[in-house]
């Protein structure tokens, strides 16, 4: 394990805690800048859509939120898996810190999708594969949070949550590929790795800037929450006592 020392330097809460603060401030600032620029592009530069008129402008938050809902889940499962494999304290804390933000973006994706579906498709909700699997993702997040809340011992809560998070990973490719694998009311992907985007350039740029804005927001919010969890769980340790004293 000696070769891994550098890599694991920040895997102890004591050294990660002050770093997380700097990162949270930095990414929080970036998030504000990117969201402001993204919204400006989305509302004032991107043209009206030929089919949907102005209602398509929901895309600038719907797609970033939906991507974040899946991406945060993958990161959460990654940390959960690390926690099971290496039994590091920080891994479980990171997984717990990610879940509420992931659940929030899943809800936003469903909410904005519903408000977008009504005027375009003609319905708030349908049980097609894309919408159903995204709803299952929300339940996975809720299940993870409920399971962790139900177990008093944090390390046991981490392990139980990790198992749930890892099993639930199968749902993420199902969401992503649902529009290819099954007949759905939801249209296919406008942006994918395998083919050219089917969006006008300004619309695409606005959406991608918002993706980065949401991404940076998530990093900042998750790090803030991770700092809280670190202090709560390790409040009796020497390093935490020092920060609790100074309030830094």
């Amino acid at each position: 394990m000696s070769s891994g020392i550098n890599w694991f330097k920040f895997s102890s809460p004591a050294s990660f805690y002050p770093l997380a603060k700097k990162l949270a401030v930095g990414f929080g600032t970036l998030a504000v800048v990117f969201c402001a620029v993204g919204l400006y592009i989305g509302f004032f530069m991107a043209p009206t859509d030929h089919q949907q008129g102005e209602s398509y402008r929901i895309i600038f938050i719907h797609v970033p939120a939906a991507w974040m809902s899946m991406f945060i889940y993958l990161v959460m499962a990654f940390w959960a898996g690390m926690g099971l494999a290496f039994n590091t304290r920080l891994s479980g804390m990171m997984a717990s810190a990610l879940a509420p933000t992931g659940a929030m973006f899943t809800f936003i994706a469903l909410w904005t999708g519903s408000l977008w579906g009504k005027p375009t498709w003609g319905t708030w909700w349908v049980w097609d594969a894309r919408l159903t699997s995204e709803l299952i993702l929300l339940f996975l997040y809720f299940g993870f949070l409920a399971l962790q809340a139900a177990i008093d011992d944090p390390r046991r809560a981490d392990r139980a949550g990790a198992v749930l998070a890892l099993v639930g990973v199968v749902n993420v490719p199902i969401i992503y590929f649902s529009v290819k694998w099954w007949n759905t009311l939801h249209q296919g992907a406008s942006v994918s790795l395998s083919s050219a985007p089917t969006m006008a350039t300004t619309m695409l740029i606005g959406m991608l800037v918002m993706v980065f804005g949401f991404w940076f927001y998530s990093i900042a919010a998750v790090l803030m929450r991770a700092r809280c969890i670190m202090l709560e769980r390790e409040r009796n340790s020497e390093w935490a006592a020092q920060y609790l004293e100074s309030g830094a």
């Binding site: 102005e54 929030m104 919010a221 929450r225």
Partner: peptide, 28 residues
């Protein structure tokens, strides 16, 4: 007016912004 889609567009943006702000307040 958002071309007649004000309810849907602003309903989406307001809830999204509201949730993000609430999350940050709760964290503080």
């Amino acid at each position: 007016a958002m071309g007649g889609y004000a309810l849907y567009v602003w309903g989406s943006y307001a809830v999204t912004a509201g949730l993000m702000v609430v999350e940050l307040i709760l964290l503080v």
